[in-house]
Simulated assay, not measured.
Amino acid sequence: MGDIAKGVLGGAWTLLVGWILPTALNLAVFLLTVAPSLRDLGPLERLRGASGLGTGLTLLTGALLLGLVANACQNALYRLLEGYLLWPARAFEAGCRRSRGSRAFLADRLTVLRLERRRAEQGPLRTEDAEELARLLADPRLARAAGRDRRRTAVQRGLLRERFARFPIADDQIAPTRLGNAIRRFEEYGWDRYRLDTQLLWNELTGCVPDQIRRQSELARASVDFFVALLSGHVLVALAAALALAAGDKPDRIALLSTLVVLAALVPVWYRSAVTATDEWAAAVRALVNTGRKPLAASLGLALPQTLAAERAMWTMVSRLSRIPYHERAAALDPYRAEPATTDPA
């Protein structure tokens, strides 16, 4: 019974922090800054005449309901911010080209830093390394960036590596937005390392790992959910303020304009915070994949092979078996099946 209560409370906590709390903040901003301008709306007039306790209960109820709605719409919100939903084809392709260019430029900057550090520590570079360094520094834009990078501290250079790590490894996995790339990099982790399709086998994987590992993944995602819900609510409140401004001459026009400007300025801040928060989420998913492969194989009636190459072949067939209809070629998975458990006769 205690485990059930713990699971319920844990799920409620991630829902509260990830969706209900930011929704309450946005609702409070709306009621304080935009609602006073909407004097012709009956529900808001009744709320304005309610007591303090009634207003608080209304705010709490509204935050709960809207938070649950936002949680139900989270897939659409994420896909929109990742660049997969409602993006025109040209905008999607342009975003992917920009992301590939940003990743390539960061990779070149890190290569210059690595080669220059090697030259400083070990002396003259090998011919091919020296030629590569000269080729990279021949680019004026890269040379200017390298000059700035040389003045960076070790910590600041580490931040460059963090930025580069937020991109997927494969070119065909690049997304058009920073958040899309930051999420896609750990979605492809299991496939790149082990040929384990974690998107396809996510429920099986999370059902096998220890509770602590699964809980870490949920809490890490809650941080990203918080910023996604916060910026989404900011956009809606800003739109409401803009509509109120466009509706006519308002006595509190300055308050509406200030709200619109402040919220518009905060949206990119929360977006960047969401991108940064994916680092902890990525670490949790990496731990989940690394520690969950063996119990996942056991739960599927398979024995984890001794070699990494054989393991990658096994997970490729498991992923294919889960994704497409059964075919006789799936019998190639038989060598990886675990020996049936034997019971000692009494």
Rank of each mutant, 00 (worst) to 15 (best):
L9H: 08
T14G: 03
I20E: 06
L27I: 09
A28P: 13
V29I: 09
E45F: 15
R46A: 10
L47I: 11
G54K: 06
L59A: 02
L64Y: 11
L66Y: 04
G67L: 09
L68P: 02
A70H: 14
C73G: 14
E82H: 03
A91R: 02
F92C: 02
E93V: 00
A94N: 05
R97E: 02
R98Y: 00
R103A: 09
A104L: 04
F105L: 06
A107G: 13
L110S: 05
L113E: 10
R114I: 06
R119S: 11
R119E: 12
R119W: 15
E121V: 09
E121T: 08
L125A: 07
L125G: 02
E131I: 13
A134N: 15
A134E: 15
A134K: 14
R135Q: 08
A138N: 07
L142T: 04
L142Q: 05
A145Y: 08
A145S: 00
G147R: 01
R150M: 04
R151V: 00
R157D: 05
L159D: 12
L160H: 03
R163W: 08
P168E: 05
I169K: 06
I174H: 01
P176F: 00
R178L: 02
I183H: 10
E188Q: 12
W191G: 11
L196G: 07
D197C: 01
W202L: 04
L205V: 00
T206F: 15
C208A: 06
C208W: 00
C208R: 02
V209R: 02
D211L: 07
I213F: 08
S217W: 12
E218M: 12
S223P: 08
S223N: 13
V228H: 14
A229I: 01
L231Y: 14
L239D: 01
A244P: 02
A246T: 03
V262M: 09
L263F: 08
A264Y: 10
V269Y: 10
T278P: 15
E280T: 04
A284I: 03
A287S: 13
L296Y: 02
L296S: 00
A297W: 03
S299N: 10
L300Q: 05
L304G: 01
Q306D: 09
Q306G: 04
A310D: 15
E311T: 01
M317G: 15
V318D: 03
P325T: 09
R329S: 15
A330R: 04
A331H: 15
A331F: 11
D344M: 11
